[in-house]
Design a protein around this nucleic acid. Structure first.
Length: 854
RNA sequence: GCCGAAGUGGCGGAAUGGUAGACGCAGGGGACUCAAAAUCCCCCGAGGCAACCCCUCAUGAGAGUUCGAGUCUCUCCUUCGGCACCA
C-alpha cells in the first residue's frame, strides 16, 4: 500500500518520534567533536514572523547537517524577554508586561515546535527570569569593582508633556510619538561600561576572525574607528586665570591654517561664556532641540554663533575667534575642533557661511586653490605644507611629527590615539528590564547591593501608563535599607539596556540550571559558538557588545575564550511593504495583509505607502507563517524559505511561489513510495551498468558533490534545494525497472532523502524508513560522492573565438591540448569565424573550454 | 551626512573570472476529464531570419583590467541595513 502525502500526519509522527527518543538533548561528551549551533534568540513580540522562520530554519539545517557529519551538536533557544514593546502593549491594553511576555513566549514556543527544529528544549531560558538576570546584576557589580562600570551624565530625549524619557524610535520628526510634544535633550546621570578600555583588542581580534563575513568585520572596525592624531590646546584667559581648550585632530599638519575654534553647545566653556549673554544662551538652547541620533546631528543644517571670546593659537599666539557650532559633537574627542576651512569640508562650508577667513596651507602639485568652491583635493594628505612658516615643504607625516614635537615642548599638545567608539551607557529609565543593583543612601552615597541580596527582583505586577518609570512610584521596590549604615535608602530605579541581556545568553545555555554560578565548566566544553546565525541588522551593536562582554568574563576567569562566535552567518532581512497613517502627531501602522491597492480593507480609506522595510512589530508589517504552516505543512514552508533566496540576501516577501516547493515534496513522496512499493531494490553492481544507468549515477554523485560543498562550505542553501530538484527530475525521467535500474534509482533516492533531511526533516524521516532503513535519518551518515562515479569518458568543451561562443566539441576526457584544438578547429562555425586569420593565442581550460584569439 | 551591502527575463533567483538566465513561480499551448481541480507533456529574455542552423543585443549607467567580466577596479544612480535608548 502506498500512503498519500499528508504533511501534518507525517510531521506529527516525526516530531513524536524525536520527543519520545529525546533526540536533540545535547550532552557534554569529552573527546567528541562538538558543534555549537546558535541562532539569535527572538524577542517575544507575539508570533513568529518570516524572519524568525528564515533564521531558525537556516540554523536547523546547519545543526542537522553537522549531526549527520558525526558532530556532537548543541542547538539551544531562549527568549530576549525584556524590552519596550511589552511596555507599549501594557499601555495599550492595561496588561502587565510580564503576562503579555509570557503569553507570547508560550505561543511562540508552540510555533517553534511545530516547525520541527532540532532544539534542546531543556536549555530554554528567558532573560526576564530572576535566575537569569541575577547574573547581569552580579557581573555588573564585578565591573563596578574593577572600574569597568562607572557613573556619569548622558543625554536623553525628554518628552516634556509625558515627563518621560523617550527611545530614539519613539521620537518622530522631533516630537514624542504619543504626545506630539517637541522633544528636548536632557542630561541625566547614568551608568556606563568602559568598552573603550577594550577598543584595541576588539579591533585587533577582528583580524583572525576569518569565519565572519568581511563586511561585518569592516563595519566593526569602522565603528571602533581608531585614529592617530594630536591632542592640542588653545590657551585662553578667563576671570584672570589661564586655562586651555583642548581639541583632537588627525590633521595637525594643517594647524597653521586654523582661523577659528568651535566648541559643542554642551561644552562647559560654552555654558560659562553664555552667562550674561542672552543671545548666545538662546542659541545654546536652540542646539538642545531635536534628536540625539548621529544621523540627525550629521544631516542638520550647520549653524554656529560667535562667542565674542578668543583663544590663542598654540604656536603663533595669534587670537582666534571662538564659536559654538551645532556640528561639533560633545561625545567625540574633546567636544571642540580647530577650524581649518582651507582643508576640511565642514569647516569650509562653515567659514563661507559666517565669512570667516580661509587660508590655504597645503599644496598638491601646485593645483589652483579657490576660496569660493570646495575641491576634493583640499582634504588630501598627499600635499606639502605652504604658508606654514618653518613647516613649509614638509609632507603630511613629517609635518605632523614636527608640529607635535613643538607643541609638546610648550606643554600644549601630544600625539594621541582616539577611538570613535564610545562607552556603553546601560541605564534605561524603564520598568521592564533588569534592575541596576545599586542603593542610594543619603549618608553613604551610591552603595552596591551585596551579592547575598541578589537578585534585586523586578516586581512583575505593575502596569506602566506612559509617564515615567512605575518603579519610581512603587514604594515597596523603591524604599530599602542602606547595606552599609542600615539607614533608610532608595533603590536605583533605572533598569539595564536589553543589550546587556543578549550579550552573554549563549554562555548561559551551557549551564542554565546552575543556581550557584553564572557559568560553569560546561561552557568550556561548548564554547565558542561554532556557527552563529542572525540578522545583518545586528552586525555592529549586539555582536560588539557580546565580544566585549566575553572579554570581560575572560578577564574575570569565568570563560576560556576571547571571542564568542567562531563563524557568523548574517542572514538577510525579510522585507515587506509598510503602510501607515498620520493621526495628528501620531503614526499608526497597518499590516500589508489588511491593505489592498493603497486602501485599508476595513474602512476603505487610503493609507500612506512607506516603501519596503524589515518585518517588525513596530512597523506592523510582519507575515504570520502560521497560515502557511497550516496550509502546506512545516516542511514546505522550510523548503520554500531556503529555496527562494540565498541566506545572506534580503528577501522581499511574496507568498505566490510557495506552490513550487509543495509540488516538489509531493512529487518526491510519490516517487519514493512508488519505488518502495515494488519491493527492496537489488544491490548495485557498478560494473554491470548500461550508459543510461551510468548517467543517472553520475548525476547522483555530481549532486552529492555540489550539495556537500554548498552546505558544508558555501552555506548556499537555495542551491542545495535546486540541485536536488534537478536530481529528482532526472529520476523522474529515468524509466528503467530492471534490477540494476532500480538499484541506481535507490541510490539516487537515498541521496535525495539524506541530503534534504536537514531542510525538510519530517518527510525525510518517513521516506528514509520507506527506503528500507531502520535507523532514523537524523542519525544517518552524510553521503559523500564517489569520485569514480563522477568521471565521464567523454566531455563537451565550449569553443570560443575571441571570447565569444562559436561552437561545442566532444572529446575524450583525457585528450591533450593539441588534440582538443584540432577537434575544435574541425567545427564549421568555428572555422567560419577564424576564416584564415592567424591564431595569435590559444587558451585551453581543462574540461571547460578552448578559446582562440585571432 | 557617515559606514556596510545589493541591483541579472513578467517574478524569486543560478552562473565559485570561462556556455548568462540552472531550479522554481507566473504565463501560453496540449493530454487526461462530462467538467473542474490535481497530474503529465511542450513552449517561454529582446531583435533579425519563411524556417532550422545561425547572427546581433542584453546582467542599474559609464569607463577600465583581462584571451575572456554578471563576477575584479574606479565614478555615478537607485534600493536596503546600521548610526550607539527598537530588538
Amino acid at each position: 500500500m502506498k500512503p498519500d502525502y499528508i504533511p501534518h500526519a507525517v510531521e506529527r509522527a516525526a516530531q513524536d518520534y524525536w520527543v519520545a527518543h529525546d533526540s536533540f538533548r545535547a550532552r557534554e561528551r569529552p573527546g567528541a567533536e562538538k558543534f555549537y549551533c546558535l541562532c539569535m534568540f527572538p524577542y517575544p513580540s507575539g508570533r513568529l514572523h518570516m524572519g524568525h522562520v528564515r533564521n531558525y530554519t537556516i540554523g536547523d539545517v546547519i545543526a542537522r547537517y553537522q549531526r549527520m557529519r558525526g558532530k556532537n551538536v548543541l542547538q539551544p533557544i531562549g527568549f530576549d524577554a525584556f524590552g519596550l514593546p511589552a511596555e507599549n502593549a501594557a499601555i495599550a491594553n492595561g496588561v502587565p508586561p510580564a503576562k503579555w511576555t509570557w503569553d507570547n513566549i508560550d505561543y511562540m514556543r508552540r510555533q517553534l515546535k511545530a516547525l520541527g527544529f532540532a532544539i534542546d528544549w531543556s536549555r530554554e531560558l528567558a532573560t526576564c527570569q530572576p535566575a537569569y538576570y541575577k547574573w547581569n546584576q552580579w557581573l555588573f557589580l564585578r565591573m563596578l569593582e574593577k572600574g569597568i562600570a562607572y557613573k556619569k551624565t548622558g543625554v536623553v530625549n525628554w518628552d516634556p508633556a509625558d515627563q518621560t524619557v523617550l527611545a530614539n524610535e519613539q521620537v518622530i520628526d522631533g516630537r514624542g510619538w504619543r504626545t506630539g510634544a517637541l522633544v528636548e535633550k536632557r542630561e541625566i546621570p547614568m551608568y556606563y561600561l568602559r568598552i573603550t578600555g577594550y577598543a584595541e583588542s576588539l579591533l585587533a581580534d577582528l583580524e583572525p576572525l576569518t569565519g565572519w563575513p568581511e563586511r561585518v568585520r569592516t563595519m566593526q572596525a569602522n565603528w571602533i574607528g581608531r585614529s592617530e592624531g594630536v591632542k592640542l590646546a588653545f590657551p585662553y584667559s578667563i576671570d584672570q586665570r589661564d586655562e586651555k581648550l583642548w581639541v583632537f585632530t588627525t590633521r595637525a599638519d594643517t594647524l597653521m591654517g586654523t582661523t577659528f575654534v568651535a566648541i559643542a553647545a554642551e561644552h562647559p566653556l560654552a555654558t560659562r561664556l553664555a552667562q550674561g549673554k542672552p543671545g548666545l544662551a538662546a542659541f545654546i538652547d536652540e542646539c538642545k532641540q531635536g534628536g540625539t541620533t548621529e544621523a540627525e546631528l550629521a544631516t542638520q543644517e550647520k549653524k554656529g554663533m560667535a562667542t565674542g571670546f578668543s583663544v590663542k593659537h598654540p604656536l603663533t599666539g595669534a587670537p582666534l575667534p571662538l564659536w559654538v557650532g551645532n556640528y561639533v559633537l560633545m561625545a567625540y574627542g574633546e567636544g571642540a575642533v580647530m577650524g581649518v576651512p582651507g582643508h576640511d569640508e565642514r569647516d569650509f562650508a562653515f567659514a563661507l557661511k559666517y565669512r570667516l577667513p580661509i587660508v590655504q596651507v597645503i599644496d598638491v602639485e601646485k593645483k589652483p586653490y579657490d576660496k569660493q568652491q570646495w575641491a576634493e583635493w583640499y582634504a588630501e594628505k598627499t600635499g606639502t605644507c605652504v604658508n606654514s612658516g618653518r613647516y613649509d615643504g614638509l609632507p603630511y607625516g613629517k609635518a605632523v611629527d614636527a608640529i607635535a614635537a613643538d607643541l609638546e615642548k610648550k606643554g600644549l599638545g601630544e600625539k594621541q590615539v582616539v577611538f570613535r567608539l564610545r562607552d556603553w551607557g546601560i541605564s534605561r529609565q524603564r520598568y521592564w528590564g533588569c534592575p541596576i543593583p545599586l542603593i542610594h543612601c543619603p549618608l553613604c552615597g551610591d552603595v552596591p547591593v551585596p551579592d547575598a541580596q541578589l537578585p534585586v527582583i523586578l516586581p512583575e505586577d505593575l502596569v506602566p501608563d506612559g509617564s515615567g518609570n512605575p518603579l519610581a512610584k512603587h514604594a515597596a521596590f523603591l524604599n530599602c535599607k542602606c547595606p552599609k549604615c542600615g539607614g533608610a535608602a532608595q533603590r536605583e530605579t533605572d533598569t539595564m539596556d536589553t543589550f546587556v541581556d543578549s550579550s552573554w545568553y549563549f554562555l548561559r545555555y551551557c549551564s542554565n540550571d546552575n543556581a550557584k554560578a553564572m557559568v560553569d565548566e560546561r561552557a568550556r566544553y561548548w564554547m565558542p559558538v561554532d556557527q552563529y546565525i542572525g540578522g545583518i541588522e545586528h552586525a555592529i551593536l549586539h555582536l560588539l557588545y557580546s565580544r566585549f562582554w566575553t572579554k570581560v568574563m575572560r578577564d574575570l576567569g569565568l570563560v576560556g575564550v576571547s571571542e564568542p562566535f567562531s563563524n557568523l552567518l548574517t542572514q538577510g532581512m525579510v522585507l515587506n511593504q509598510i503602510h501607515f497613517r498620520r493621526e495628528g502627531a501620531r503614526v499608526v501602522y497597518f499590516n500589508p495583509a489588511d491593505v489592498e491597492d493603497g486602501v485599508l480593507k476595513s474602512d476603505g480609506k487610503p493609507v500612506e505607502a512607506g516603501g519596503l522595510g524589515t518585518m517588525s512589530k513596530s512597523k506592523n508589517n510582519g507575515v504570520d507563517p502560521q497560515v502557511m504552516v497550516d496550509r502546506y505543512g512545516a516542511d514546505t514552508v522550510r523548503c520554500y524559505m531556503m529555496f527562494t533566496a540565498p541566506p545572506e540576501d534580503t528577501l522581499e516577501w511574496s507568498d505566490a511561489s510557495i506552490e513550487g516547493s509543495a509540488r516538489f515534496l509531493k512529487g518526491l513522496w510519490k516517487q519514493v513510495q512508488d519505488h518502495a512499493a515494488a519491493g527492496p531494490a537489488p544491490a548495485l553492481e557498478v560494473a554491470a551498468l548500461n550508459s543510461a544507468q551510468k548517467k543517472l549515477r553520475q548525476k547522483t554523485h555530481a549532486t552529492l558533490q555540489k550539495v556537500g560543498d554548498d552546505l558544508g562550505r558555501r552555506l548556499k542553501l537555495n542551491t542545495v534545494v535546486a540541485a536536488n530538484m534537478e536530481l529528482r527530475n532526472a529520476v523522474a525521467d529515468f524509466d528503467d525497472a530492471s534490477p540494476q535500474g532500480r538499484a541506481v534509482v535507490q541510490e539516487a533516492l537515498e541521496a535525495l532523502v539524506a541530503t534534504l533531511a536537514p531542510i525538510t526533516p519530517h518527510i525525510c524521516h518517513a521516506l528514509w524508513q520507506a527506503l528500507g532503513h531502520v535507523e532514523p535519518v537524523i542519525d544517518a551518515r552524510w553521503p559523500e560522492p564517489d569520485a569514480a562515479a563522477l568521471k565521464a569518458d567523454r566531455v563537451t568543451l565550449v569553443v570560443q573565438v575571441n571570447g565569444k561562443l562559436r561552437g561545442r566539441v566532444e572529446v575524450p576526457a583525457d585528450a591533450g591540448n593539441d588534440a582538443i584544438a584540432e577537434a575544435a578547429l574541425a567545427d564549421d562555425n568555428v572555422r567560419k569565424f577564424i576564416a584564415g586569420a592567424a591564431i595569435k593565442k590559444r587558451v585551453v581550460v581543462p574540461g571547460k573550454l578552448v578559446n582562440f584569439v585571432v
